[in-house]
């Protein structure tokens, strides 16, 4: 196994005018991880992904992917990268097949065979004109484009937003196609508001709020060791940016939810342990 992180982000900060898009974001992703990137609209998810991909330059800090500076990616690293943006850009005057052929030329490892198999799996007709595709079909084509060269690092910015439930399952399955086959460590970062999808595949969760990392932790650890404490006061100002161990209390790590506080429970904060991701997400964003 390779010890170099697949992604390392150190002290990324970015402000637009008066808005803080990223606030001292640091984390490292081990190869083979599937990271679910969670946060409300405007939390900074897309900005973070763009900085990781080198599409946006931060004001402070730096990101590296596959041991290469994001702002200075080499061709060999680009070939190992797959990316699906929120709004896929396609060549509208070409067919699905022609779009794939054109993109395929840029990658040494591109497999036409695998691209066709992915199209079949994603129920995408290769003769359709890109202009006539529905938003969901455009997203599916972008997914095929990102996967057909069997990359080592995959970055998806809300890839399933326009997909129907069956296409979403198919998408989740394709994530592991070439991992299992080649026994390789394929690293995935996936932002989505569909928590159920994240729960199916993520090994790690990254909670982002107002541009800052609230929590970056192993998914199973989050399920088993996090509790939500309903309280009138935050236990600790730092719970707003919770890092491993900071609010540890024996086995439990507490996330404070101030919304549903019941005054009668002033001396005994109501606790909810082993919370589902949706509840945790709300607690993190109160």
């Amino acid at each position: 196994m390779n010890d170099t992180p697949a992604i390392s982000v150190e002290h990324l900060s970015l402000r637009y005018g008066g808005v803080t898009a990223l606030d001292d974001v640091s984390f490292a992703v081990e190869p083979g991880s599937v990271v679910g990137l969670l946060g409300r609209n405007g939390a900074g998810k897309t900005t973070l992904l763009n900085c990781i991909l080198g599409l946006t330059a931060p004001q402070d800090g730096a990101a590296r992917i596959l041991n290469c500076a994001s702002l200075n990616l080499t061709d060999s690293v680009r070939e190992r990268l797959g990316y699906v943006p929120q709004t896929p850009e396609l060549f509208d005057w070409l067919t699905v097949q022609q779009n794939l052929e054109l993109i395929g030329r840029f990658y040494k490892n591109w497999s036409d065979e695998y691209a066709s198999a992915l199209c079949a799996r994603m129920s995408l007709s290769s003769h359709a004109n890109a202009r006539t595709l529905s938003p969901g079909e455009r997203q599916r084509l972008a997914i095929v484009q990102a996967l057909a060269h069997k990359p080592d690092l995959l970055i998806f910015d809300e890839p399933v937003a326009s997909l129907d439930p069956i296409a979403r399952r198919d998408f989740l399955r394709t994530l592991f196609d070439h991992t299992v086959e080649a026994g390789r460590d394929v690293t995935v970062v996936l932002s989505s508001h569909l928590l159920e999808d994240i729960e199916r595949v993520a090994t790690h969760l990254l909670f982002l709020r107002n541009g800052a990392v609230q929590c970056f932790a192993n998914h199973d650890e989050v399920s088993e060791n996090f509790q939500v404490v309903y309280s009138a006061y935050r236990l600790d100002r730092r719970t707003r940016a919770l890092h491993t161990g900071e609010v540890a209390n024996g086995q439990w790590r507490s996330v404070v939810d101030v919304r549903t506080f019941d005054r009668s429970a002033l001396h005994s904060d109501a606790k909810m342990s082993r919370v589902a991701l949706g509840d945790l997400f709300e607690a993190f964003n109160t």
């Binding site: 083979g32 399952r169 989740l172 399955r173 592991f176 991992t179 299992v180 199916r200 595949v201 090994t203």
Partner: peptide, 17 residues
């Protein structure tokens, strides 16, 4: 592991674990 991961659209690593 592969069959379970495929059937339920979950991470094969979870099944291995």
């Amino acid at each position: 592991v592969r069959a379970v991961a495929e059937r339920y659209a979950i991470n094969p690593m979870t099944v291995s674990k």
